[in-house]
Write a protein that binds this DNA or RNA. Structure first.
Length: 255
DNA sequence: AAGAGTCCCAACCGCTCGTGT
DNA sequence: CACACGAGCGGTTGGGACTCT
């Protein structure tokens, strides 16, 4: 359409945000909301474009963001949701409370994709063996954010089906015992705390290519019978059972 | 200890979509 | 109906952090 770029770069700051900018943005959003991102930087006195402010808020400053390592359960959920939804990161993020599309996208591209591809085993092993860097950074970031945010970050409860927990418990155990340092660093994100509420599952299972609200292309049907299987047959059976119990493709409720 | 290589993530870019006029 | 505009989304990348040799 040939529109002008969102921000005339003249005089607008780019690059990493400073703590002061974060503070200003958080204070402004808390006070006035963010009904108009384009006007927000001016009103708040920030030398940033609205787009940049929006991104910073959504991906970093929002009080309900859950920071820290992705648990094994979350990673599995991403994999399953990606099978259902494809690269619709925002849709996937909507089903993982506290996680952002950007974060999920990053996790997918950095290790989940590798893990799924056959050659990913070694990589995955390394990923579980050496998440120190991530944990360390996450801790620092969490401290920084909590210093900036006016509200305490809220831990969004997420309940995981017991059956799923049982099928992945071994993996979870491996994950959680990777190293004691990691353990310390990820204390606040243990699998016990990672509980998805029931609506998560009903919503997830409601995702169907035929559902008009699902946004699924009909060319990308639910592939329960194709390659790129989950980690185990048990997993596959579990998802298949759930899917069938939910009424298959026909009787799925709309979200 | 230091340099090279690799990984990860925050942020940017450009496109599409939805809405108002 | 056509256009303009803002918001949102997904792909990409620069550079810092970390590991390896």
């Amino acid at each position: 359409m040939g529109r002008a770029p969102c921000c005339e770069k003249m005089g607008l700051k780019r690059g990493p945000w400073t703590a002061e900018e974060d503070r200003i943005l958080v204070a402004h959003v808390e006070r006035h909301g963010h009904s108009n991102w384009r006007a927000l930087p001016k009103q708040a006195g920030l030398l940033r474009c609205g787009k940049s402010c929006r991104l910073r808020w959504i991906n970093y400053l929002r009080p309900d963001i859950k920071r820290g390592n992705f648990t094994r359960e979350e990673e599995d959920a991403i994999i399953h949701l990606h099978e259902l939804l494809g690269n619709r990161w925002s849709a996937i993020a909507a089903r993982l409370p506290g996680r952002t599309d950007n974060e999920i996208k990053n996790v997918w591209h950095t290790h989940l994709k590798k893990r799924l591809s056959g050659a990913g085993q070694a990589q995955a092993q390394r990923a579980t063996a050496a998440p120190k860097r991530k944990a360390k950074k996450a801790k620092a970031v969490a401290a920084e954010v909590s210093a900036v945010a006016l509200d305490e970050p809220t831990t969004v409860p997420v309940s995981w089906p017991e059956q799923s927990l049982s099928t992945t418990s071994a993996a979870t155990e491996d994950y959680s015992t990777a190293s004691s340092a990691d353990q310390n660093a990820t204390d606040s994100f243990t699998s016990e705390e990672f509980q998805i509420d029931d609506s998560f599952w009903s919503e997830t299972l409601a995702m169907t290519p035929d559902s008009p609200d699902s946004g699924m292309e009909s060319a990308e049907p639910l592939r329960m019978d194709t390659a790129s299987p989950p980690s185990t047959n048990d997993d596959m059976d579990f998802w298949l059972k759930l899917f069938i119990q939910a009424g298959g493709m026909q009787n799925l409720p709309q979200i």
